[in-house]
């Protein structure tokens, strides 16, 4: 019954007009609230795999149907190159990564606005909501990739050694989803109609990413510029990892730099505006 306040609970917590900077105090607080971040991930998983009738099948079906469609269309009619991999496999991996990435980005974007009471009635470091939500995409991609095994067997392809680097790719994917999702999340609270722009944006983004075609189609300096899109780096990394397609080193470096920039600026922006979320949502 006695109040057993831990020493760290005894520190003064300040709420003033300024603040909202990234720093040690913020990291400490994130750590204290880490369970809530995990809960957001857990809730997202529960909902994603419970709400739809197809459940897990949906995660597989989405890239599978896309693969069949685009293989029939692109590979035959236009003869899109695929960096030496079989086009259906090439497309499947690209589409699986893409589905997980965009699910993460759009769910992170809407998590705060779909339940405004989370923002107006309780306190927690707001960044945990989009961050936790994004984590669910990790499972999406792992489940989707399970189908690559049988597909490779069908096409008589053996997995490369690089497959061991898959966990690294998954972490990369989550980071890309987080970096972009956090921007979307903050912008959607502040500008409600960004949702409509996002639908279009995601489509445009698909065509600007090497999902259905390889980045090797683009030549010269333009290819470097192309990799400023961090999705380009992550999609091609996954393919290199699973299918052993060649990786364009300078491009990956640019994607990584771009990812770090997006994530840090996104965090800083989110942190700066989150204090007004409750008043504006």
């Amino acid at each position: 019954m006695a109040a057993t306040a831990a020493p760290d609970h005894e520190e003064w917590i300040e709420n003033g007009p300024s603040g909202g900077r990234l720093g040690r105090a913020w990291l400490t607080e994130l750590w204290e609230y880490r369970e809530l971040g995990a809960f957001f991930a857990w809730r997202e998983l529960k909902l994603r795999y419970k709400q739809s009738v197809l459940g897990i099948a949906w995660v597989l079906l989405q890239p599978l149907l896309g693969m069949i469609l685009f293989s029939a269309l692109f590979a035959r009619a236009v003869d899109v190159p695929s960096d030496g991999a079989r086009y259906p496999l090439f497309a499947y991996v690209g589409l699986a990564v893409w589905a997980a990435l965009t699910a993460g980005v759009s769910r992170a974007g809407e998590i705060l606005t779909e339940d405004p009471n989370l923002v107006t009635k309780v306190y927690f470091p707001r960044v945990l909501a989009p961050a936790g939500t994004v984590l669910a995409s990790g499972l999406d991609i792992l489940i989707a990739l399970l189908l690559v095994g049988p597909l490779m067997a069908i096409y008589g392809v053996t997995p490369p050694v690089e497959l061991l680097l898959l966990p690294l790719c998954v972490v990369g994917l989550l980071l890309v989803a987080f970096a972009i999702g956090i921007w979307m999340s903050a912008l959607q609270v502040l500008y409600r109609d960004i949702r409509y722009a996002m639908t279009f944006g995601l489509q445009a983004w698909l065509f600007a990413s090497p999902v259905l075609y390889p980045s090797s189609l683009i030549s010269g300096d333009l290819r470097l510029l192309y990799f400023v899109n961090p999705a380009a780096g992550i999609v091609e990394s996954f393919r290199a990892c699973v299918l052993g397609t060649p990786l364009y080193g300078p491009g990956i470096a640019i994607s990584a730099a771009s990812l770090v920039t997006l994530a840090l600026t996104g965090l800083a922006y989110f942190k700066r505006v989150e204090r007004s979320f409750a008043d504006r949502i």
């Binding site: 520190e11 709420n15 989370l118 107006t120 009635k121 309780v122 306190y123 204090r275 007004s276």
Partner: peptide, 27 residues
């Protein structure tokens, strides 16, 4: 007091975390 929103001026300090129950069933 519970840091749900920030003041326009002035400061609120709490010694330890302040929890708020402004509605029930949030989330």
């Amino acid at each position: 007091v519970s840091r749900i929103t920030a003041p326009t001026r002035g400061v609120v300090r709490t010694r330890g975390r302040a929890g708020a129950i402004l509605e029930i069933g949030t989330g």
